[in-house]
Amino acid sequence: MNIKILGAFAAVALMTACSSKPDTTTSGGGATSTSGIVPGSQEDLVANVGDRVFFGFNTSTLQPDAEGTLDKQADWLAKYGSVNVQVAGNCDERGTEEYNLALGERRARSAAAYLTAKGVAGGRISTISYGKDRPTAQGSTEQAWAQNRNAITSVK
Rank of each mutant, 00 (worst) to 15 (best):
I128N: 11
A111H: 07
A146T: 13
S20H: 14
A78P: 00
A108P: 01
Y114Q: 10
L70R: 04
T136E: 02
R149S: 01
D75R: 10
V49M: 04
Y114C: 06
V155K: 00
G68T: 14
G139R: 08
G89Q: 07
G81H: 03
S35D: 15
A117Q: 12
R149C: 01
G95R: 01
I37P: 07
T24C: 09
E97T: 14
V38W: 09
S19L: 14
L14R: 08
V38S: 11
R52E: 14
L101H: 08
K21L: 11
D51H: 13
T59Y: 02
S19D: 12
S154R: 14
V155A: 02
D23N: 15
T16Q: 09
I37G: 09
S33P: 01
S129C: 10
E93G: 02
F55H: 15
N58K: 00
A88L: 02
T24S: 13
D75A: 15
T153F: 02
G122Y: 14
R109F: 06
A108E: 04
K21F: 14
D51V: 03
S140P: 00
S41R: 03
G81K: 04
T34H: 15
L6V: 13
G40L: 08
Q42V: 01
S60T: 06
S60L: 01
K72R: 12
Q86W: 03
Q138P: 00
Y80P: 00
K4P: 00
S19P: 06
N58L: 00
L14C: 12
L115S: 05
A74N: 01
K4S: 04
Y99T: 12
G104M: 06
S60D: 13
C91A: 12
D65G: 00
V85F: 05
K79A: 01
T141W: 11
R134G: 02
L62T: 09
R134T: 12
V49N: 01
L101I: 06
G139H: 06
D51Y: 09
G81D: 08
V12L: 01
A88H: 03
R52S: 14
I3N: 06
V53Q: 01
A11Y: 03
A102I: 05
E98V: 08
G30E: 12
S129A: 13
E67P: 06
N100I: 04
D65S: 04
R52F: 10
D23K: 10
G119C: 12
G30W: 09
S129F: 09
A117P: 03
V46N: 11
N58G: 00
A47H: 15
K4Q: 07
L70F: 07
G104L: 06
E43C: 04
S126C: 05
R52C: 08
R94G: 06
L101T: 02
Q147G: 06
Q147R: 13
Q42T: 05
T34G: 13
G30H: 13
K4A: 08
D75M: 10
M1G: 15
E105N: 12
L70G: 06
Q42W: 04
V53K: 00
A121P: 04
A47I: 11
N2E: 15
I125S: 03
Q138A: 10
G139V: 02
G7A: 11
S129I: 08
A146V: 02
A108N: 01
Q147L: 13
G40N: 09
V85A: 04
M15K: 02
S27R: 14
A117L: 06
G123D: 15
A151P: 03
V87G: 02
T153A: 09
G123W: 11
N84A: 13
K156Y: 05
V53A: 02
